[in-house]
Nucleic acid binder design. Sequence first.
RNA 1: GGCGCCGUAGCCAAGUGGCUAAGGCAGCGGAUUGCAAAUCCGCCAUCGUCGGUUCGAAUCCGACCGGCGCCUCCA
Length: 514
Amino acid sequence: MIRVYNTLTKTKEPFEPVHPPKVGIYLCGPTVYKPSHIGHMVGPVIFDCIKRYLAYSGYDVTLVVNVTDVDDKLISESSARNIPMAELANEMTADYMRNIEALGVDAIDHFPLCTAHMGDIIELVGRLVERGYAYVSGGDVYFDVTKTGDYGKLSHRPADALMGEGGGMAERKRNAADFALWKSAKPGEPSWPSPWGPGRPGWHIECSAMSRALLGDTFDIHGGGLDLVFPHHENEIAQSENATGKPYAKYWMHNGLMQASDELGKVGGRQTRAREGDLTSQEAGKISKSKGSSAFREMLERFSGETIRFFLLSTHYRRPIDFSEGRVEEVETGLETFYRFFKRFQRVTGESFYSLPAATRRADGDFDPGADPLLEHVADLRNRFLADMDDDFNTGGGIGALFDLVRALNKYVDEEGLENPGRQTPDKLASLRQGATTLRELGLTLGLFRSPVDEKAAGAGGELVGKLLDLFVAVRAEARQKKDFATADHIRNGLAELGVTLEDRPGGTDWTIG
RNA sequence: GGCGCCGUAGCCAAGUGGCUAAGGCAGCGGAUUGCAAAUCCGCCAUCGUCGGUUCGAAUCCGACCGGCGCCUCCA
């Protein structure tokens, strides 16, 4: 039984899809006006992972992530750069796509564009006007929050505490909390024809329209960052449920926000509301689009996508993450333990870890450990992993089980002496293989361990470097043969200073760079 | 001011009523190694403070202290 925390009810609820085995998930995606920063990657990674896990658990999942390519911010940014809005949108969408791809996020089924769904949006706004939930005012269309009884039910705030946009729009609104469904175009602004005159969609309506177009009036999970609870998601519910007369999303899942940071992801933080003398809160605030934040792609020059993914998944999705390079380096060190085991597995079995045929369905993966102590242990750890993931996708706890699993496998290789071909038996190799297959199976539900990460040695001159290192290793082996350890250590220490680590094993010496 | 979250070892972090409080990083000791590296074994926390509820609390309630978020664009 999978349980998910629902912002709507503030409790963990049993996950029961509206139309099992189908599951529809809608995640609020990027507004493509600036390059992505690390904070934008949290949602895609978590929900990519949630989809994988649900699919693994037997559901038929459709994951939709919208791309908002028309919006006030796009308009101002494109005019500042003096390029068409569509060109800006294309450029930033491409940046976003490259970034999520690097993170191994490829479980998303649809990336609807706002500009490609104008018909759906206009129809939805029209419905709201017809039904009396929205009114036209000077070419704009506003949602009247007083017409719906449960406005505020997601953010759990009293209706009178909810305020909408201020500024020039305020004059045209009946109530301060009303929000724009359609904004009339000023001269020179991009616009689309509508029954209320040329204009563009309000901020929230596109999600209501596109989720409806792709997932139907009612779907299972709606996700997004915690900062979108109000007003964005609150308004989506109001629009959608009053336009269709049906429930909107059944479960609302909100990920915690990326906090603080250093060079690779500068902080935004509160500006206008900082209390006097409250400097630390400005330094340690969340990463925000409104302040400068380093582009995510710069981070990818320092860390592999898998490392960053591992970092993001190493804590629970609802918890805020304090980002810093140092922390990513720490989890990278831990991740390397897995990589070393994968190499070791290949040495021992001659088979690539990455080619192990892991079960893609949870039910298929059940195995009878028999009387094999290793496999009994593996089965326990697998159950622990699944129990953690079932409990609101506790990836942090699950990763802990994965670490225990590699340790169990390493220990098995140690104790059975499997690095020594003479001590290998078909039974022992089969047990090791089954344990490793389970590790791969569980890792894949997190989107980890999918394919070999490029060695840092690769790149310019990589081939020559490799041959030179092989030569050093060969010379050193001769020295060791002659018990000339001074020379052998000289070579190893010298290489160590250059960042090359040598590991002597019964079967020979391996080198690794970095 | 309104609403809300968080505070577990040097750092990160799982656990939210009951076996010896996961795991990672760092550190220390040991096995192994010619010496290393890697691997394995062991050590390293009573859970912000105070009070309450309970047979029993890190886990529930209250107060306080500290950190942060939303209420305005935000993933």
